[in-house]
Computed example of a mutant assay.
Amino acid sequence: MVKSRKAANGAYPRSWLSGAPPPRWVRVLPVLLLVGVGAASLTDSVPLDIGFLLGAVPPLAVLAYGPWATALLGAVTIALLTIPVFHLNQPGDTDLFTLGFVATLSVFVSFVRGRRDEQLDLERTVAETAQRAIVPDVRRRVGPVRCASLYRAAERGTLVGGDFFDVGPGPHGVRAVLGDVQGHGLSAVATVASVMGAFREAVLDDEDPESIAARLDRRLVVDSARTEHAELFATAVLLDFAPHGREVRVLACGHPPPVLLRGGAVSTLELDPGPPLGLGLADVVPGTVATVPLRPGDRLLLASDGVLEARDASGAFYPFVERLAGMTGVGLDELPHEIWADLSRFAPRIQDDVTLLILTVDTSGPG
């Protein structure tokens, strides 16, 4: 879940056919058709039987113009057919009535399209605001922790799916989470909202990662009980940064462990993971919290299944750690996009949410 949010957190840029403004060539096309037919008719003294082409002008105008501009283009079209100097084969009354009807109908369709576009824009704005409230952009700095993130939703046109992540300050330090709920796309949004709300409360109240995991687990268990056969669960990694910035406590709940970038070396943290959240086992069979010493410049990289389980055309998994070894010199802010570009080249068809969260402690700046 990180401007499109494809340029930022996950929404793919809208195409013309998905509600984006029409490209310039669509706006120019009806005008070019008018000018082209008019110019062709003036350059030849023999009447040309090309007036039928003008029948396409009003429908084309509907794609890019409002009702007034569509009406104007329709009127110019009729004028071209009736002005003798253009020699457009002297159309009969039936031709003119037909073109007039098409132009009038195009004006009506343009009016309806404009109203529908306004309503869709309003609904899209409301939806994007709600989705950004669920998984907002992570700040570039939270206390002593510098952050970089990227999110690509599997379902096009959405800003949030089944992945979640956040970095928040609290009275007990800076806490971070990255996880993946069951399923993806819009069907998982309600679960993501519930988990994120529980995590933000836990940052303020709970003193250790185990307590945070137990709170998230209970939240999912309660939500699952409301719906028969819901079976809600999530995997997650929780990080708890020490106030002095020299170590971080890490707890994995059914999720792959973070990767540590230290200088030119890349290694996966060795953790004793606990069960996924939502099974009611966080208090019964908790995972073991690992304390990881941090050196200046160390970076912790958390990734979702969309990265770790991406496959190429042959079915081979994306070699995440091996590929990171060639990116250790990339800056913090550029690294998520470098990974995404490399992943896109490796696996052209990515069918799961892709989330990356990179964290490093920097005590030199304001915290």
Score class of each variant (00 low, 15 high):
E201S: 11
I358S: 02
D49A: 15
T360K: 02
Q90T: 14
H337V: 06
T355M: 06
V174Y: 03
L301I: 04
Y65N: 05
E118F: 01
V289L: 04
E247R: 14
P23G: 13
P319E: 04
G100H: 00
V57M: 03
L54A: 02
E334D: 14
R219K: 14
F346T: 04
P47M: 10
S267E: 15
V250L: 07
N9P: 13
S110C: 08
V31R: 07
T158H: 13
L150H: 08
P276M: 08
D205H: 08
R219Y: 09
R226C: 08
F86E: 06
L105G: 10
V142T: 13
W68N: 01
F241N: 07
G157A: 03
D137H: 10
A127I: 06
L324I: 00
T82A: 12
P21L: 08
A252D: 10
R246H: 14
V2A: 15
G197A: 11
V138L: 15
A153C: 07
S224H: 13
G66A: 07
P58E: 06
K3V: 15
I78F: 09
D333Q: 13
G162P: 03
G297P: 02
R24T: 11
G326S: 08
D93G: 13
Q182L: 08
I212N: 00
F165I: 00
A69G: 03
G254T: 00
F165V: 00
L238C: 03
G278Y: 09
G263I: 09
T268I: 10
L301Y: 00
H244S: 15
D93H: 11
G263K: 06
A148W: 02
L300D: 00
S224G: 15
A8W: 05
P348W: 01
L48V: 12
D137F: 07
Y318A: 05
L343H: 09
V248H: 03
A310S: 14
R116Q: 14
G197W: 10
D353L: 02
Y12A: 14
V307L: 08
R27I: 06
L99R: 01
L269P: 05
T43M: 15
A265H: 13
R113C: 04
E155D: 10
S15A: 13
V321I: 09
P91S: 02
L159I: 03
A341S: 11
V28L: 15
G179W: 04
